[in-house]
Design a protein around this nucleic acid. Structure first.
Lengths: 222, 222
DNA sequence: GCTGCTTTTCACAAAACTGTCATAATCATA
DNA sequence: TATGATTATGACAGTTTTGTGAAAAGCAGC
């Protein structure tokens, strides 16, 4: 669910935005002035923060500056028509968008959506390990060999992911059991061997990247 | 050319608006009451529709509700000053703006221009995910398969939207419960499974895009 | 309070996975 | 190369996890 913080000293505006946004399925938190906005943004994380420029106690720009110190949430400013000149000034504060009063809630919602999408797109770089034709996508929990998806059992994924994350590091069976199976696993050391076997089969031509360290354990070799 | 529909039972108002608007180069159509407005809006498409709230036969809100069923045109309401309270009520009907009587035609024209600008901007960035015959419109909260609208329960929409917004990302049941159901949901993990089942049924031929990640959770695969 | 729809829980069957073990293969070294 | 130690492999029984239908619980509109 998208969480937004709306800061404006006019109650009517907050109310209208809240009503519309909740109707759209957002979770809305209100603040009456800049100071309150800063506090609430510190206490809780939001997906988007909407700040009026003219507010008592602390104006929108100062609030934005303060909030940006500890939050990556995109900020949308609300400005009266006469404040157009501020647009130029504000972008260096990391302000994502401006909406000019009077605005339609519909437009604000649309812009919030766009801001969220932008910021999440920036974050959503998939975590992938690539080596020749081997592709391990940690985010999607997916392994491809020469472009073809390879399906594995949960333990195979977990084991492979741990080995690859610790590539070129010697890992004892004890260490593997502890990290992949969990500290509370009381079973045979040799269990690891069996799973290594299955993993090698799944890895096909890349099977040799899992190297046996005699008398020690295994490692994944890049 | 911008086409507007102005509905008001007072002839004088229609006339003033028409004169001013035509001077601005708009094409104006008039309606004397809500019913007529609904009919004319159905027959022809407008860029903006201006509705008086108090009208015989069908009031502005009801007319708006009806018109919104088949039109995306922004609606501007005309209200007597004493009807302020209506502002809150009307927003969920998709009303874009209010102009309080008595108004200056100049102001109305300005707001019409703003509304036109907004609606074209909002349309341009309608938030839609498409994949072959699958179309998920987040803004309209609507899902189509091969052009046919698929109706779902609220939870199905919510779950699908979250999965699609996080396409190709492995999502655990806990994560899904937290994000779709809310952090305060204290229920069974398996609830997710049941909803996944229903969602898959709703998705018909696209059911396989929701893939099971054994021992982990689910993900939506593009 | 009824009614119909949605959501959650539950139980069971089916499917998939895991750990163990016996046996074969491999390795290091004397 | 013979030997003992270590690792690889195949099979399988037991366990875990998931899919599903149905029942129960919730909820909104009348």
């Amino acid at each position: 669910m998208i969480k937004i913080l709306i800061a404006d000293d006019e109650e009517k505006i907050r109310e209208v935005v809240r009503e519309y946004a909740e109707f759209e399925g957002f979770a809305v938190t209100e603040a009456c002035d800049g100071m309150e906005a800063v506090e609430k943004a510190r206490a809780e994380s939001f997906d988007v923060i909407v700040l009026d420029i003219m507010m008592p106690r602390l104006d929108g720009f100062s609030a934005c500056k303060e909030i940006k110190k500890y939050s990556d949430a995109p900020v949308i400013m609300l400005s009266a028509r006469s404040e157009e000149y501020d647009k130029l000034f504000g972008f260096e504060l990391g302000i994502d968008d401006y909406v000019t009063k009077p605005f339609s809630p519909k437009e604000l919602i649309a812009r919030i959506r766009v801001a969220v999408k932008r910021s999440s797109a920036a974050l959503a770089e998939a975590d992938v390990f690539r080596y020749n034709g081997l592709e391990i996508n940690f985010t999607a929990r997916e392994v491809c060999i020469n472009g073809k998806k390879v399906s594995m059992t949960p333990k195979e994924y977990d084991l492979l992911f741990y080995l690859v994350r610790n590539a070129n590091i010697a890992l004892s069976r004890e260490k593997l059991l502890e990290e992949v199976w969990g500290y509370d696993f009381y079973g045979d050391d040799r269990t690891v061997d069996t799973h290594i076997k299955m993993l090698r089969n799944s890895l096909g031509e890349f099977r040799d990247h899992i190297v046996t360290l005699r008398g020690m354990g295994y490692k994944f070799e890049k």
